[in-house]
Structures are given as structure tokens and as C-alpha cells.
Design a protein around this nucleic acid. Sequence first.
DNA 1: TTGAAAATGATAGTAATACTATTATATTTG
DNA 2: CAAATATAATAGTATTACTATCATTTTCAA
Lengths: 223, 223
Amino acid sequence: MINLLSNLKISVPDKIYIKDPESSKLGKRIVEHSILLIDEIGFDSFTFKKLGQKIGSNESSIYRYFESKHKLLLYLSSWYWAWIEYQLVFATHNVSNANEKLDKAIETITRTIAVDSNFSHINEVVLNRIIINENSKSYLTKEVDAENREGYFIIYKRLITRLSDMILSINPTYPYALSLASTIVESTLHQHFLKDHFKSITDCNDSISPYDFLSHLTQTTLK
Amino acid sequence: MINLLSNLKISVPDKIYIKDPESSKLGKRIVEHSILLIDEIGFDSFTFKKLGQKIGSNESSIYRYFESKHKLLLYLSSWYWAWIEYQLVFATHNVSNANEKLDKAIETITRTIAVDSNFSHINEVVLNRIIINENSKSYLTKEVDAENREGYFIIYKRLITRLSDMILSINPTYPYALSLASTIVESTLHQHFLKDHFKSITDCNDSISPYDFLSHLTQTTLK
DNA sequence: TTGAAAATGATAGTAATACTATTATATTTG
DNA sequence: CAAATATAATAGTATTACTATCATTTTCAA
């Protein structure tokens, strides 16, 4: 899978960027170091000026790739979900048992990424942290409907639809497949956040993982 | 309940504000109209200058109540959860059946607030919309651990602990009571958001409510 | 290999943001 | 009624989130 990924390009809706950051060395440096810098100082304090200083490049050059830091976040978010989707499809392909299939999907979504694949300029361990901490900010805006119409969230929505389909193939009469699917994805991020910052309101820790909780929750509900 | 609330003061951790906005007419106007303005233009575009213009008051006066717009959001969030907690305690008090008790709690958390109580300067209908759209931003920051230590999130955490206790009193061996409780609260907000903006990834709509989904989810899991 | 096109860098500028500080004017209250 | 307190007005600062222009470097096609 890792070897495959190094030859495949994760595809992000092209309206998100002005110039494809995958198309040049500078573009890749922008993406690579934006992930590291956002992780370091947080998205709210992150600016293109600071990023420019970090990569020894000019603020104005970064603006030629991304209209705003918000668009960059949308890019990172889409890239992440496309990457998860890819792994999910790969991990569940050829699994004939519906329960097993869904469980593998949940495992893919909930697992803590431990090691950077090192096959692209994107550090997935750090990107995963950013998604946990910043993903909601990509859609909790006044522009969400307009941006949704532009297709900025299709990958995220497609992932949830896939998960929902797997849920329905186990129990076709379950009436909340989409809500359960969107809850699994959202709760994954939330539980990871809670175990890092609000330990008193989660059971997740070193021995209990978000997978344990969400896999159990899904199984019992669909039974 | 509504009458009771008009005589009770919702108590918010006092480190959140510089001067208690409940202690003066201006303070109340700040809170009242900040809710309306944030709802109108979104938290990201909201500034104290704009709020000052709206209430015919000066920016510098608003800074005497709240250190920053972030602190104001923390105030609104705490107020909201304290208000929900109050209703939850009230609605579940004297309900002896554990299942019924939990169900009433979930109902309180998930319901769409339809009418402003009109007994305080705070419009709960609008505040509920703000919580759906902006609540995550109150804790998805680099300062979350420091602010948590200051006690800015106790009310929210207490609410989840209460819910968790109700879950445990139904099934004392259920190993994910806290995670389920935090998921119920988070998923409520998320499903409300999805039905307003990403209809294709939720089952919630005019006839199916977040309550239906989450009440069913909880019941089946604890069985 | 050269020269035009494309990409990047440097610099400057703007309106807005998120404040702080100071001073003046109301308002409250003892 | 005076003193204390609250609010308003004004000014000022560093930073942000850009846009615009022009200079320089790199690329790549004839």
C-alpha cells in the first residue's frame, strides 16, 4: 500500500488551489511545511508570511498557490480524507463478510497514525494531528454552503457515504446509516482530541482506543 | 422551569470575564447583542468594534468586560451548557427509572430550541445556533490546556459526567460511558450542523431528529 | 544556445484587526 | 454634593491578510 501510494497521486478538487502545489518543488514545500508549521503554532496563528520565512520563500509566491490560508486548510483536509478513503477502499476490498468489512473500515478511520510513510513530502502523522485539531474550522464558516456547492467537501462526504453503504449492507433496515457513519468519523477525531486535552470525559487512553469504543458501538447498534 | 430561570442566575466561571456582564445594563447589552451579531456575521468576522457600533457603545467599554472575543465565546459556551445542565437536572429529577431518566437527558440535550424563553436578555434559540456553528472553536486552540487548568470548561465537562453517570446506572459494566456521553453531546451539534449544510451525510431532517438517532443508538448499545 | 515565457522574489502599500493607553464625560452612590 | 465608578472618545501600535508592481531567476522550446 505504501509503495502503491508513492506512485499514486492523491487527488484534491482543483478549485481549492490556484496552482496545483503538486506541480512544482515550491508547491510541495508549501504543503510540507504548512503542515509542520500549523502543527507547531496552530492554524489561528499560522500566516503565509511565517510560512514564507520558514521555507525561505516569499509570501507573495505562496499566494500564487493558495488564495488564503483557509483554502490551504481545505486542501490539507481534502488530501487527508482522500488518503484515508484510499486506505479504506484498499483495506476492505475483497473482504466478502460484511461485518468484517465494516470493522476494517472503522479500524482504518479510527487508528492513530504512528509512522510517516516517508514516500511523499506529506507527513501523515503530523497531518493527522492537524485534522484532529483544525478540521472543524474548515467547514464551520459562513461560506460553507457556497464552498460546498463548489465541491470542496466531496471527498469527505464520499468517505461517509461509503461507510454508510457498508453499514446498510449489514443491516438494510437500519434507519440511521448516514448519521452513524458521520458520527463515527466525527467522534473519532473528537475522542482523539479528548484523550489529549480533556481526559476526564473520555474512556480512551493508552489501553482503550477510539476504535474499541466505536467498533463496539457500531456492532451493538446494528445487531 | 422558565419562571424559575428568570429568578436564577446561570453561573459562569468568573475567570472568563474581567467584569461580570450580568452586573450592569451595558454588560447585558454586550452579551445580548454579541449573540445576535455572531449569528448574523459569524464568529470569525465578529469584532468588538462592530459590536460597539451595533449597541451604540464604545469598543473600549466592551474590553472592560471581556479580554478578547475568544473569552466572550467561552462565556457564551459556558452559559449555554450551564443552561442545558440546569434543564437536564430539572427534567430528570425524581425520575426513578434509569432508562427513562437517561432518555429525558438525551432529549434535553438533543432538542432543537424553538422559542426564546423571553425571560432574560439571552435569546436561547439564537445561542443554540451559535453553539452548533462555533462551539468547537472555543476549545480547538493552542491554549486549551492552560484554559482548561483555569477551569473554563468545567460546566461542559460536568454535563458530560452527569450523562455518563446516568449511562452507568443503566449498565454499570459498560466500559465506554464517558466516551458515549461525550459522543452524544458532540454528535448532537454535528447532526444539527449536517442537516443545515451537508444533508447528504445525515439522516436527520424534518421528520427524523438527532434525538431519534441518538436515543436509538444509546438504547441499543446499552442493551 | 538563446530568448521568450513562466515562476519566483522583493518591495510597497492598504484596510482591517486586536488590542492598549490616556483623557474626558457621565452616572451612581454614600 | 462630592467622590468614586463607569462609560465614551480619541489616538496609537503591531500584526494580519491580502493586492499590485516590478525585478530577477529558471525553464524549456526552437
